[in-house]
Deep mutational scan, measured.
Amino acid sequence: NITNLCPFDEVFNATRFASVYAWNRKRISNCVADYSVLYNFAPFFAFKCYGVSPTKLNDLCFTNVYADSFVIRGNEVSQIAPGQTGNIADYNYKLPDDFTGCVIAWNSNKLDSKVGGNYNYLYRLFRKSNLKPFERDISTEIYQAGNKPCNGVAGFNCYFPLRSYGFRPTYGVGHQPYRVVVLSFELLHAPATVCGPKKST
């Protein structure tokens, strides 16, 4: 009989979020998941679920829940969905086509923008091939755009693969920082350890 609540607040209220190319993952297990707390949290810009209804989450049990978190621009949030393409979905964070879970995003301009620009948040701009679902690539190898080998030196046709967002408070909404948490639900042939409040007695 599990009684402790799942530590969703640790994920959602973290002081610093990860850059999207180096997205953070927390495994959540052996706890009671009260999703209504999240669902009623006012400032969400997006709360979209795939393969599961957000209002039914509290009735369900899962083997594991993974909480992935990172920061992207407002106009990139739409790429955090199954079957998407674009710089983020291709080179930074890719969801599987059969994704079961929820994508939760909110504007973090007050936290993550600075006058003069916040350059701490990076994304991958160049990559030889697209990421596989949930693949994480933190390499900083110089990207070779031409035929000539770069030998690890940036220059003509040789690019550092990461780019900084440089968030400023005055940017338009599409270019403002958004914090994103992706909850993915794993249902294995194993005992369920993460259940909603109704199922955990």
Rank of each mutant, 00 (worst) to 15 (best):
N1H: 08
N4T: 12
N4P: 06
C6G: 05
P7S: 10
F8D: 02
E10K: 10
V11S: 02
F12E: 01
F12N: 01
A14N: 07
F17M: 06
F17E: 04
A18I: 02
S19M: 02
A22I: 04
A22H: 09
W23A: 04
R27T: 12
I28A: 04
V32W: 09
V32T: 15
Y35V: 11
L38T: 02
L38G: 01
L38M: 09
Y39A: 14
Y39T: 14
Y39H: 14
N40M: 07
N40S: 12
F41M: 14
P43F: 06
F45S: 15
F47L: 07
K48P: 01
C49L: 00
C49E: 00
S53I: 08
P54I: 15
P54H: 10
T55G: 14
K56A: 13
N58E: 11
N58H: 10
D59F: 06
L60F: 08
C61H: 11
T63N: 12
T63Y: 09
N64E: 11
V65G: 06
V65W: 02
Y66H: 07
A67L: 13
S69Y: 04
S69A: 05
I72H: 01
G74P: 04
G74C: 04
G74E: 08
N75S: 13
N75V: 08
E76F: 00
I80S: 02
T85V: 10
T85A: 09
I88R: 02
D90E: 08
D90I: 01
K94H: 07
L95Q: 00
L95H: 00
P96M: 00
D97L: 11
D97P: 10
D98Y: 06
F99E: 00
T100S: 07
T100I: 14
G101K: 00
G101C: 01
G101L: 01
C102S: 00
C102F: 01
C102N: 00
V103M: 02
A105C: 05
A105W: 09
N107E: 07
N107R: 06
N107P: 08
N107M: 03
N109A: 12
K110I: 08
L111H: 13
L111I: 12
D112T: 01
V115T: 14
V115F: 10
G116H: 12
N118Y: 06
N118A: 09
Y119I: 11
N120L: 09
L122T: 15
R127K: 07
K128Y: 08
K128V: 08
N130V: 14
N130I: 13
L131T: 03
L131Q: 03
K132E: 11
D137K: 01
D137V: 00
S139W: 01
T140P: 09
E141Q: 12
E141C: 08
I142T: 10
Q144H: 08
G146W: 06
K148D: 12
C150N: 06
N151I: 08
G152W: 06
V153R: 15
A154F: 10
A154I: 11
A154H: 12
G155V: 06
C158I: 04
F160R: 15
P161W: 01
P161L: 03
L162P: 04
S164P: 12
S164L: 05
Y165L: 04
G166N: 14
F167L: 04
F167W: 04
R168K: 14
P169G: 08
G172W: 08
G172R: 12
V173M: 12
G174P: 09
P177K: 02
Y178L: 09
V182S: 00
V182Y: 00
S184K: 07
E186K: 08
L188I: 12
A192H: 14
A192K: 12
T193V: 09
V194Q: 11
V194S: 11
V194F: 09
P197S: 15
K199E: 13
K199F: 14
K199D: 13
